[in-house]
Amino acid sequence: MSRHLRAAGQASAAAVLVVLAGEVWTPVRAQDHPDPYEAGKAVYTRWCAPCHAAGVTHPGTNALTVKYRGVKPGVLLEWQDLQAVAVKFVVRHGISVMAPFRKTEISDQELDALAKYLSRNTPPT
């Protein structure tokens, strides 16, 4: 592959050839964050926010709003009683049209960080 990259770079001096350190780009993973809170937030932003951020354009938020009818917020980040164990269960088992996430997508370590992040408002029992 390195040969191909060099070749492509030589092909056009004007080309904007983007190759990051180590030749290739990979997504930032939770373990890249030393701070567990930031690690959990990174997992949430990458995997959960497209469905669960604020607004009806997010199917997860729309679904939770209808399901809980004001008893709980539609936006997952606003829940005050989300248990880490519940986060882990739903991520690994799915619910409704939300399919489970495999360990190659969200590793156990990343799931720990995510569960802590999403349950950060929940008082300890």
Binding site: P50, C51, H58, P59, A63, V66, S96, V97
Partner: peptide, 19 residues
């Protein structure tokens, strides 16, 4: 985006989600 998952998900117009 993932907006298309409103198909089958619970919405005010479709209160029973599919699997």
């Amino acid at each position: 985006s993932l907006r298309a998952f409103s198909i089958g998900a619970r919405t005010p117009w479709s209160p029973t989600p599919s699997k």
